[in-house]
Design a protein around this nucleic acid. Structure first.
Lengths: 336, 336
DNA sequence: CTGAAAGCGCTTACAG
DNA sequence: CTGAAAGCGCTTACAG
């Protein structure tokens, strides 16, 4: 490994002390302009590149935010990353990224890696199955602030940033109501997912808001496979009073549901309106699609998470207010 | 910032030297088993977490691979990242990720950041517009090996890993030939993209291979907007002998082309076969789609890039062979 | 305005 | 088998 130029090299050449060189490069006003210029000049000439890792070590700060997410293939996490990056980058913070691939063991090992590397803070979207929070507690114990995004930890009273699922579901359901529907179904994700439940809550609120009685027959739970969605749709279609509006947990479910109708109930296809969460590209190539979709602003989730994280890092004694913030970014409903 | 436990703390408590503690934790056989056990025990009890950043600094190695890509929203880069991660993770290397967002200025600043942070190596998918390679040269100058993926730098004789575009295009074109087509068009991306040209080459080879004369009228260039694709399609459809098979640069173009046919030449829709690159999800929801698509294995690109990079990092004097490797991962053709 | 000195937390050749 | 010592490249209070 070829060694790089160090402050010492510059100091020797210029017959000054390392301190003076260091201060000059940091533009310390205590140093005379002339000296600063001479140092700058030689540093440029020699292509000096400060060794940040030495600096971080000395300052006991890594200027790095650890970011752990389940899977980069999910586009919403990528949006959140971009939001975080936008803020962190401006403050000269780096991002150390790791994926858990929805595996709690991997998650634990990755968090430990983050601790070993002394990230200044950790932003985490936890696994679907994460219940044991001890490794995250450990982070806090060693002084690394932790902030959760998108997936809310069940037990912990923690700092959390996400989108407003209740509000989104409310809007999606109300849209169907305004279109005149009275029999509105909700095809939900697993009850174990807090997000599923939040959307159920929004769905119920919208019904109540329009004085439509909640009917548990109209709520079907699926685990995101096509088979489950077909089963759910079949059950709904066989009801004495089948729904004319269907709010689904997300785009993929809607598409599977439509595909089911095409095959089994083509005559009903035109009579049923769908709304859902998500905004898949390619919608423009489809003949049948949801009439409206809730779009979540994960970029903003990332941005606000990063802002909060920087606050947590910079306030030595993090205020209770920041520490337990719970931010919900509003959702937009767009018609397709 | 709460201070963590250090080797010194453990040494003091156990009445040994810091060296002994360090060696014990590194499981150095020179230390007696008893001592090693005692140290391990206290370290566990105290939740000691080694300060990797101090270690890296001391060892003058960051155990970090810098990875710079244009945009995480492009799913193929994510696949490459996953491949890199799989290999790097196994060797306890971290990934420092940054996006250039196709901006050469941002790219330069990000590479400089990587140098300042003394990454052990840099894997880069360059911007579409990158021509000035000086910042990458600078990397090499300071001893950081550089490896390019997916996007090949024009001027530099460099280490490069990507998919075999020529072969992929060959297969896609040959598929159409085997289906009996003789008039086969190629809707290509910008000529400035080396990948476009490589696919043109594969297209030509397939034609030649079947003794079909190349006809430049059948090659249309687009810049990926829907308008351009429509213009290209219109030109092709107005030919005296319009194509019956069309090979396009990627899925999106195919979809726009099909959408064009639906509107303008619905009667020809069933008579034209498409092949292309890519494998968008949602294909199953579409009524018309390419008959076959070339699937690129970017995960494997990432894996091989990481393997190569680790070699470059570990061999102090990188062999010429490794240094200038040019690896092309084969492509698969799948029927949709 | 400049410099000598201490120290961040580790590792490692060397001595015993 | 164990420890004293040097040193990685920086920053920063302190002295002058």
């Amino acid at each position: 490994m070829k060694k790089g130029i160090t402050l010492k090299d510059i100091a020797r050449k210029l017959n000054m002390s390392v301190s003076t060189v260091s201060k000059s490069l940091n533009n310390d006003q205590a140093i005379s302009t002339l000296t600063r210029e001479r140092v700058r000049e030689l540093a440029d000439k020699w292509n000096y590149v400060a060794n940040e890792s030495a600096r971080h070590f000395k300052l006991n700060r890594s200027f790095t935010i650890g970011l752990i997410i389940p899977d980069l293939q999910d586009h919403f996490f990528v949006k959140a990353i971009n939001g975080i990056e936008a803020i962190a980058g401006k403050e000269n913070y780096n991002i150390l990224l790791a994926q858990s691939h929805e595996n709690t063991c991997k998650e634990e090992s990755v968090v430990n890696m983050m601790i070993r590397n002394r990230v200044d803070g950790l932003i985490a979207a936890i696994t679907k199955n994460t219940t044991d929070m001890t490794v995250f507690e450990k982070c806090r114990t060693v002084g690394i602030p932790v902030l959760y995004i998108v997936r809310e930890p069940l037990k912990e009273h923690a700092c959390f940033v996400s989108v407003n699922n209740v509000e989104g579901a409310f809007k999606a359901t109300r849209f169907l109501i305004k279109k005149g529907h009275r029999r509105i179904a909700y095809i939900m994700g697993p009850q174990t997912m807090p997000i599923s439940m939040a959307r159920l809550e929004g769905y119920k609120q919208a019904l109540e808001n329009s004085a439509i009685a909640f009917d548990s027959e109209l709520v079907q739970e699926v685990n995101f496979t096509e088979e489950e969605t077909e089963k759910a749709m079949l059950a709904l279609m066989k009801l004495e009073q089948p729904p004319t509006g269907i709010f689904t947990f997300k785009n993929d479910i809607t598409l599977d549901a439509i595909s089911f109708l095409k095959r089994k109930y083509p005559e009903r296809l035109d009579k049923i309106d769908f709304t859902d969460f998500g905004n898949l590209p390619l919608f423009k190539y489809l003949d049948y699609k949801p009439v409206a979709s809730v779009v979540e602003d994960f970029y903003e989730v990332g941005r606000q998470a990063a802002v909060l994280m920087l606050q947590m890092i910079n306030e030595n004694k993090t205020s209770e207010e920041v520490k337990y913030s719970n931010i919900k970014i509003p959702c937009k409903l767009i018609t397709n």
